[in-house]
Design a protein around this nucleic acid. Sequence first.
DNA 1: TCTCCTCGAGATCT
DNA 2: CTCGAGGAGA
Length: 304
Amino acid sequence: MRRNKGDFVTEAIDEYIVFDLETTGLSPEYDEIIEFSACHVVEGNIVSKYGTLIQPNYSIPEFIEQLTGITNDMLKDKPKIEAVLPDIQRFIKGKILLGHNIHFDLNFLYDVFKTHLDVELNNNYVDMLRVARKVYPEFKTHKLGYLAKMLETKHKPAHRALSDALATHELYEMAKAVIREKDMDFSKLYQSRNKTINDIKSVVSANEEGILNGEVFVFTGTLEKMERKKAWELVVKHGGDIADAVSKKVNYLVLGNGAYRQRLKGGKSSKMRKAEALILQGNELQIISENVFYEMLNIISNSE
DNA sequence: TCTCCTCGAGATCT
DNA sequence: CTCGAGGAGA
C-alpha cells in the first residue's frame, strides 16, 4: 500500500493527541488493530480521552494474548474497526499526533482509514522514539518500557493502549523540559544525513501538475550527467518525490549509467537487490537507467 | 583531504 | 530507519 502520510513536526508542541494501538502482530498488511486509546493534551494537560477495544476478523495469536492480556474472549462482543473508525477520525481530526515509534501505529491507522473511509490519514506527527534518542543519547536502549523505568513515569507501560499512551505523554513532557533546560534546538532533533533530501523538498517548489506527480524516485550509483542532488531537484520540480532507500512506496529506482553497465555484467547494489525482491512480490516498481530517467523528463539523452 | 556513495549491523512497534 | 566504517574519485 502506498502511503501519503503527514509530515513530522520539528518544533516543541503543547497541544496534541497522544495515542497507541494494540494489534495482532507487527504487519499492517496482515495484522489487525485490537485496541485504540488516545488522549487530547492541551498545554501539558489531558483534557479528554477516547479508547476502545476492537474485535478483529481473525483470532488473536496466543503470543499477543500473553503480551497484552487482551484475550479473544474479551473481544467477542466488542465493535469492529468499521464501527469505531468515525469516532477515531473525529477525535484526532486536525491535531498533531504523538506516539512512540509512531510510524508503526500510523501505518496501521492509515491503512484502515484508506480501506474503510477512503481517506488518507495526513495528520502531522511527532515520534517520541526519535525525540528520546536525541535527548537521551547515553541510554543503552530507547524502548518505551526502558524509558519509563529510567525516568520514573507515574504511568507504567503495560502493553495496553491507554497505559502506553499515558507513559508516552509523560515522557514527551519530560523531554520538552530537558530540551528547554539544555537549550537544545528542537528542530535539530530531526537532522540526519537525510537532511539534504528534506532541504530540497522544502526549498524547491513542487509543481503540482508535474509529469512525475505521485511518483517516488531513488537513485543508486553515480550519475554521469549531473550530481545526485541536481537529479533530486529535478524530480521535485516535476512534482515527484524522492527517498533515500528502496521501500514499497518507491516507484522508480534510477541506475547511474555506471551502475547500469555493471548490472549487465552481473554486479548489483543492495538497493537493486531490494528493488528486485519487491518487484517479485508484485510491487509496481521499475528499475530504469539514468538515460531513461532523462527521457521521462524530456531531457535529450545524447549518449549510447 | 574532502565529498559522495555503499553496505552491514542494530533498533523499535505487536 | 539510522548510524558508522570505509571505498572511490577529485
